[in-house]
Every structure is written in C-alpha cells, then in structure tokens.
Design a protein around this nucleic acid. Structure first.
Lengths: 203, 203
DNA sequence: TATATATCTAGTCAATCGGATAGATTGTCA
DNA sequence: TGACAATCTATCCGATTGACTAGATATATA
C-alpha cells in the first residue's frame, strides 16, 4: 500500500556512510543528509528516529562491508598474502573509491571519545574484528610452519593492528601525514621479515 | 595602563588545549571556552581573533609541549631507551595527567580532514617531529652498533610512528580499543627484537 | 591623582542546528 | 475503483551557535 521512498534504503545508507565518513558526524546537517543521500528529513525522523540512529546504522553498514570485503582476504596461511593485504587495498574501496578519508570508524572514535555508547559498541566490534582477523591469519601461518619464532602472536597482532589504524590516520592527514603507502610498505616488510630463515639475516 | 586579564594567557592556552583535546573543536562552544578557560568571549575576539585562531594557538601550544617533553627523551643511542619510551609516558602527561583523550593532533586530523590549512600545517609539523625523532633515535642506535641489520631505518621509523599514533587512537577508544599499554608492550618488544644477537633467535 | 586603555559584563544579532507538524502526493491492496 | 498508509513537500519551532557592541571596571603611567 505505501508509497515508495525516493531512494533505495541500502543505497541511501551507503551515501550516508560516505557523507559522515568524509565530513564527520557533527559537521553534517540533516538538510545536507537530505540533499546528498535522498533521505528526506521527514523520513530521517520517522524511519530512522533521527540523525544519530541513522549514523549508527550507516556505521554498521560500513563495518559490514569492512568485514565482508577486507577481513577474509588475509587468512590463507601464507605470510605473503598478509604482506600484500597491506600493500593492496586497505581502505574499503567499494564504498569510497580512492577516498582519502581514512576510516569512518577511526574518525568516529576520535570524534566521540567515549561519549556515546552506541559508537563505543561499534568500536569494540571494529577492534575485535581487526585483532581477530590478524590473529587468525598469523595462527594459520604459524600452523603452516611458515613463521619464525620471536615475537608472540599477540604482539604481532598488536603491531599489525597499529599499522592498519595508523595508515588510515595518515590517509586522513593527506600530504601532511606522509605517504600512507609508506606505512603499508613498512608493514609488509615487517611481515615478510617474520618468514623463517635457516640461518638468514636477523631482523 | 591596561587592565589585567582574569587568567594568565599561557595558563588559559593550556586549559583551551585540554578542552579541545577532550571534546573536539566543533563540540566546544565559545561560552564553554569562557567558563572553563577564563578567556572571555570578548577577549576571544579581540585578542585571538575568534574561536579557530584560539584553537590553532592551543594546538601550537600542545605541539610545543610535545616537542619539549617527549621528543628529546628517546635519543641517547640505546635501544632500551626507545623501548621504554613506549612503555612509559607516551601521552603528554604534564598537559593532561592520566587523560584518556588520545592525542589532540590526531583527533584534530580526523575532525578536519584536509579541510583547514592551519590544521594541516600543524599536522605536518607533528608527523615531521615524530618521524624525525624516531629516525634520529634509530640512527644514533645504529651508529652505536646497537642495532641488527634487517629492516632499514625508514621502515622502522614508519613502524614506530604507526605504533605511537595507534596508541593514541586506542586510548581515545577507551576500553573498546583494548589496552593501549598492550600496543606499547608490543612496540617495546619489537624494538628490543632489533638488538644485535651473535647467533640468537630470529625475529 | 588624573588619564588612557585593555579587559570585563551583559546583552543582541543573524544563522543554523535537530526535530516536529500539516497538507499534498503516491502507490498498493481490497 | 476506492480507501488506506507511507512518503514527500514546505514550513515552523525552540535552542544554540560564533560574533559583535555598549557601558562599566580596573590598572599602570604621567
């Protein structure tokens, strides 16, 4: 019976995520949301419950994409795959192709501090995803016997997580933050240095 | 001849930096600045030129402190000093004792993207400071013969910078981001793993 | 002590914010 | 086809924003 919305809800959510990603939560107004996502200010209230609920839905959408596209690509038991994960497509390219906006989740963490429970919950999901992804990838590599001893998996997971997060900050800083690819290269070099060597050079 | 300001300008700048640090630029109002820093809305306009100029001055003040207190503490040619730098007092403790606010500069980078030239200029100073600090520390260590070959200094600098930045993000994420000290420990372990070993374990 | 001047107090301003409302419009199902 | 329901359009609202302005106040110098 009802009338159809102007914009497909899923597409609108993608546009909203991109908007918040680029400009931040506070800097985006409801009128701007209407103009750039097609979600009417009326629908924003009736269907989503306001600006913040829409933001959280967009954040969930973003994390879903992140989990679906990036997380699985790193675990195949090979160290080289992990190294290339950094060198290749770290930001969610399907959401913002070539977008130098960093990471919506990292940006949101900075903006909200611990001030919003909803954001904090997503942040926990994000970090859990990252650490679990890296942790499982490293565990698989170790099971394959493709990793030299030294640092334990916990420490290595922390280092990879740090590189991933820091790359996004560098991206958001633009040229001021240096080339994000330089961090990616360093991470990849570090990962490759974890390869077992019969009596090769030390790290 | 003139009347004295209610609050000492330097002290007010420190308070302003702390305020922006905790809440972000957009979330802080001029009335809140007046209440918490002692800088009157009148003085904010006449002496500083508005909210953004005050913010940039506070950011400069923050970076000055950062440069004065943290940067010099890492270069003495010993790997262990660098490792302990991470484990000890990474956030500028004299500005915000025990403050889980992360880093004002990192937060500002996220908030402004590349949208403000003044902020971008400070970001460049920040990253230059960090990379130069780590780079010189590593170079001194290498000259001391206290570092094993393997990754080059450039890559190691990138890794240390990534750890430092990421620690601040974890701090700002609160419990959702995991223990920031875990990143610090991982960074310290990594640094110590760069020590030369006659024929010790590989990294 | 008188004067000059920087600052403070208090209030105003237009602009914008997120949210709410009323009436017109659209599309589906009975 | 007629009625119902969800959405759209177009305002309107109170609150808050950064910035500005008079008039009062304080302080160092002449």
């Amino acid at each position: 019976m009802p009338r159809r919305r102007k914009t497909d809800p899923d597409q609108a959510l993608t546009a909203a995520a991109l908007l918040f990603w680029r400009e931040g939560y506070h800097a985006v107004g409801t009128r701007q949301i209407e103009a750039e996502t097609g979600v009417t200010r009326f629908t924003l209230q009736t269907a989503y419950g306001g600006k913040m609920p829409l933001f959280l839905k967009a954040l969930d959408h973003y994390l879903d994409r992140f989990e679906a596209t990036l997380a699985p690509r790193m675990t195949d038991g090979r160290l080289e795959t992990l190294a290339r994960w950094f060198e290749a497509n770290v930001p969610p390219e399907d959401l913002a192709p070539g977008a130098p906006f960093g990471c919506l989740m990292v940006n949101s963490i900075c903006e909200f501090d611990g001030g919003d429970a909803g954001v904090s919950a997503r942040a926990e999901r994000f970090f859990t995803m990252l650490r679990q992804g890296f942790g499982e990838a490293l565990a698989a590599i170790e099971r394959n016997g493709a990793m030299a001893p030294g640092l334990d998996i916990e420490a290595r997971t922390q280092l990879l997580t740090a590189c991933a997060v820091s790359m996004n900050i560098a991206m958001r800083a633009g040229s001021a933050g240096g080339d994000p690819a330089a961090i990616a290269r360093a991470a990849a070099v570090m990962v490759r240095s974890w390869a077992p060597a019969d009596c090769g050079p030390h790290i």
